[in-house]
Structure formats: C-alpha cells, structure tokens
Design a protein around this nucleic acid. Structure first.
Lengths: 328, 328
DNA sequence: CGCGTTTACGTCGTTCGTAACGATA
DNA sequence: TATCGTTACGAACGACGTAAACGCG
C-alpha cells in the first residue's frame, strides 16, 4: 500500500469509476492507474470495484469503507504538506471556500481582493452551495473553510468562528405603498403582501416562517429564489415585497428601490466561518479570515485551530460596522 | 512523501532519536533510514530533528507537529490493513490490551484463554498500566482497547462499553476480630482499623476516601499497593484490613482469609472496555470483548464501533453473575 | 577506539509511459 | 467502430544493502 495507490483509488472513485478520466486528473497514464489499482486489490485481498466485463461498474461495499479510510490518510498527508508549506513561508497554493451566494457576492469580494493582492500566486476557488449543502461539502474535505449564516444556533461540523451580525431588510420599488412608510413594517402589515425571498424560506423551520408563525400569521411567499440578485430582479418586476439580507442591498446599485428594516420580530442572523477540524490551514487562509473579521486575533485563531478548543470569541460586529471597518 | 518515510520518522522518534536502533525495529538498514529521513526533510523544507555533530539530539518543534500528523497517517493506513485482514478472514495478528493489574490477573484470563484457543496465531500483549495511565496509553494508539473501572462516571477517550458491576470486599485473616462479624462492617467500624488498599486510594477523589469523608470519617490507610496480590500478602502478614475488588478474592486460593462485603456506603464500581474511536479493530478483538461481556450483541458492537454512535448498552451483570456465566 | 551517522556505489526492484490487444455497447 | 480497460515491454528512476569514511566522546 502506498500513498500513490490510495490517491489513485480516490481519483477513480471521484471520476465515476472511469480510470481514463481519473488518470488525467492525477496527471498519469491510464495503464499506470489500472496496474496500481490491481496491486492494491491484490494486497488487500478483495476487489474494490465491481467489474462488468472489463469496465468498472460500481464500488464494492468493502471498497467504500476502504475509500473512506483512504481519504483520511490523504487528508492527513495533505496536512503535513500544508504545514510544511506554512513553515517554509510558501506564498503559493490553492484556497477553496464553500459558501452561499450572498456571502460570495456581497461580503467576500473585498476580502478576497485583498488576499489576491497580497498572495498573487494563490488560486482561489469559490464553491457555491445552497444553505443546506455548505456544511456537507465542508465535511467532505472539499474546502478550506465555509462561510454560513444562522439565526441563533452555532453551526456544527467544525470550529465555528463568528464573523458579523446582520439583519434582513424589506425591499420594494420606490413606487410601492410601503416605500413611504418611513419605519419598519410590522409582521401583520407584511403578512397579506406577496413576499419574494430565499429558497430556504420554504423550509418550515426557517427563522422567517417561525417569526410569522409565532405571531399567529402565515406569510404569503409569492416566490423564492436562490440568490439575492434574482430576488431584486423580481422585486423590480413588481412581483412582490423582497425580504433579504441587508448585505445584498447597496445604496448605489439599488437606488431605484427602497429598503426598510425588517420587522423586529424577524431575528438577527450571524455569519460564521466554519473551519474543518483536524485540517491544517495555509497561512493565507487565516489571512482571509482575518480580513473578513477584523475583530479576531491571529494568534487566538491559530491556537483555536491547532488546539481544538473553542475560545470565547470576541463579540461579532454588525454588518454596518464591519463594512465601514473594511472600506476604511 | 511516502508511507515508508513516515514510518521511519516515527520509528526514529520512538527509538530516542537513534537511527540504528530504529532501523532494527523496522527491519531495514541504518543508512536506508538515514537517507529516507534526509529526503523527507528535503521535501518538507526544514529539519525534523536537531543535529549535534552527526547525531540526532532532539526533535524540532516543527518535527513534533509533523510527527503527530504522521502517526495519524499511519494509524489510518493500519486501519485499512486491519479492515482488509478482517475482510479476508485472516486469523493471525496482534492484540494489545492496556489494563490494570486486577483485570489482567483475575478477570481477563478465562476470556484470553478462550481467545488463544480459538485464534492460536494471534499474539496477545497485555500492557499493564496504573489506573490513571490506562486511557493515556490508549489515546497514544498503543492498544486495541482498554479495560478500566470507575465508580460512577463513564470513562472518556473512546467508546465506553460497560462490562460488569462489582463491589469491594473487606479481607482479613481468619483470626481477625472482624472475621466472626458475619455481616458487612460499617464505615465507622472500619475507620479506626489500619487499611491496606490500592494505590489509587491515595488520591483525594478516590471513591473510597469520598465514602469515608461523606460520613465524616477519616480512614487509616496503613499501606497502599499497586496490585491485589500484594494487598493480600500484607493482609496475611497482619498489617491491616484489606479493602479490594471482589474479583481478586478466590474461594480456593484465599481459604485462609475471610472476606466480608464492604460497607454499603462504599459505592459499586463498573468495569468498562474503552475502544479507541477511529480505529478498526480486528474481529478477534471483538471476540475477546464478547467473551468478556456475554450480554453484548456482536452486531450492536460492530455498529457502535463503525458508526460512532453510542447505543443504549444492555445493563451489565454483576461480577458474580458474570463469573458464573463464564465458567458454565 | 567504539559508536553512530553520513557518503559512496552497485544492484535490484518498481514504476512509468508507449504500444498493442481485448472486450463491450 | 469508438471507448475503455488490460497486457506487454523497455527505459528510467528509486530504494535498498554493503562498504567505507567521518566526528565525537
């Protein structure tokens, strides 16, 4: 058993059991992978993939178990390499983030721009995912860290670092009746109106639905969309009243719309960075995190990542405070 | 970076930085290890060991971190091998248990004898350790599982499986005044007498000390010893009243002594098997566990080890019930 | 001068890529 | 017939062991 064999095994499994495709991914030849796979199977004493004729058809149950362990082996080997790269002061590498659209579109850009300026040889990969998928992707080892939002709970699946607090806003065309209201509408005022909001609103446990339900009201959700840009588009089209994250509304781009605070009963949210446990992050990943959350202390963060203990995090600023701190 | 290099690294660290000694342990030559170490250091870009002249003097701080990751890599690789050996129905291998003297001397023998009969090609290694060291050794990956006892708490550091319940007994020479008592002595009756018990009694948080303290009494501990045989020896010598695990007293070997139940205020203990998380156990290890605790279900156990969830364990029998079940 | 590490060197095994072959849809 | 996996073969690389050299106590 060698690290190479395990790497090939993973590549084959991740290529849909296509050895030729896997060979390209690992920059090797197809017969090379074929042979190494056979050697690994010989050493272990059983087949890792079910053959149909000469083709690989599926992974065997035992293969699935071996694969899971192989991923851990390679993850740890990767940790050693990442640690060494940090130790050497290496300035190039990859950085993969998994996050939702709102974060990627409205929050991350300045921090990522700064990172790209400071580390021009780091290739940055944004992995978009829906609210629910983010932490799954992270658990799969596909990203260096995740950025997610919750209304209340601390996200699980890793070391959760609070970044900032934010509220939702009600967004309407300038001609809409609510535009002249001059204050936050109440839940009761919103309930009869057609709402346009995020897909996650469809889930019964969404904080928005809960807020209405707690007030004995049922919201009229006219439409849900995956991202804030779509929501704004349909608000402009007069489809309904937008209810979305304050980060998604800009004074410059959305001058034709009017934003009001959401009802007080709609709870505040917190955005978090979730760092996978047992994963060594490159120093530039911590840099990005610090750019996202200036209130954090670098050595605190390093100790938390290494030591597996969760310190008392500094209270996260509001989005308004944070965005001012970043632009200054 | 190869698995071989990491294995050599660990061997060198575990041999007190003596490459020659490490080479013997891994069945390779000394120059081979020397060269592989150098290659690994070259690839990582920094020294793993501090050199003094030509000798290795100590591990560097970075080396310590790399070493920790390397151990995890090799542990996972070992998991793959163990899984494969199970899959193949392999009947030979190693089994290392870490446990206290009482378990090794009075509880494990019949179960281990059965294991040795069923798996003659498995070499069994009992790693003795004091009460406090057991779980540390387990965490270090040095054993397949641990057997420990607690008075109340569930042991941490792995998947804790309750094996049996047991009580302590008061042991005196046949001529001792207590011998004729015919009932359990009270704490007050024991308090003035010189006691002979385990070393762990010295710790203020020991369940024995707590029982006396809760009754407003202070025990007179005349002597502590690491193992039950020593305690019995000194009880025979008239040094005091023995207070020890019921498993350690046998009707046959200790006919010259008299055993009384301990005071009711001395709490019952539970013996546990603690299985390291994230470690694949060989099937014969589970066999041994089942021999130790017949009330367990094999598939329950397998699921618990694989699935990381702790099921509702069956209530453990008392030692008396268990020893009858084993001898039948 | 013994102990332990490093360097040098020759051999062997292994891996890898190219090319040809086989099977399948 | 196109696609994908296996087999065959030759070249290159790398690992390993023996032997010798080097430093240090």
């Amino acid at each position: 058993m060698t690290l190479t064999q395990l790497r090939y095994l993973i590549a084959i499994a991740d290529s849909g059991f296509n050895i030729t495709l896997a060979a390209e991914k690992v920059h090797a030849t197809q017969p090379g992978l074929s042979k190494q796979l056979k050697q690994l199977e010989d050493e272990l004493g059983f087949l890792l993939f079910q053959r149909k004729g000469r083709s690989l058809e599926a992974i065997t149950p035992a293969g699935r178990d071996v694969l899971a362990h192989a991923r851990r082996v390679l993850a740890e080997a990767g940790n050693i390499r990442a640690y060494a790269a940090n130790e050497r002061g290496e300035k190039q590498g990859r950085l993969t983030l998994v996050t939702t659209h709102t974060q990627a579109r409205f929050v991350l850009p300045p921090a990522i721009a700064e990172l790209a300026r400071k580390f021009p040889d780091v290739s940055i990969h944004l992995q978009p995912a829906s609210e629910g998928e983010v932490l799954d992707q992270l658990a799969g080892g596909l990203a260096d860290f995740a950025v997610v939002s919750t209304a209340g709970d601390v996200p699980s699946g890793g070391l959760a670092v609070p970044l900032y607090r934010w509220r939702r806003v009600v967004l309407v065309p300038a001609t809409h009746e609510l535009a002249a209201l001059g204050r936050a509408p109440t839940l009761a005022e919103l309930a009869p109106l057609p709402l346009v909001s995020y897909e996650s609103t469809n889930k019964p446990e969404s904080s928005l639905r809960r807020a209405f339900a707690d007030a004995g009201l049922e919201p009229q959700v006219a439409m849900t969309a995956r991202d804030a840009d779509l929501i704004k588009t349909y608000v402009r089209a007069g489809l309904g009243v937008g209810l979305l994250a304050e980060m998604a509304v800009s004074a410059r781009d959305d001058a034709d719309l009017r934003a009001l605070p959401a009802p007080a009963a709609v709870p505040e949210c917190v955005s978090w960075a979730v760092l996978p446990r047992e994963r060594v992050l490159r120093d530039y990943a911590l840099d990005l995190l610090l750019a996202l959350a200036p209130q954090l202390d670098r050595s605190d963060l390093k100790r938390a990542v290494a030591g597996h203990d969760t310190p008392a995090w500094p209270a996260p600023p509001t989005w308004v405070e944070l965005s001012q701190a970043i632009t200054n």
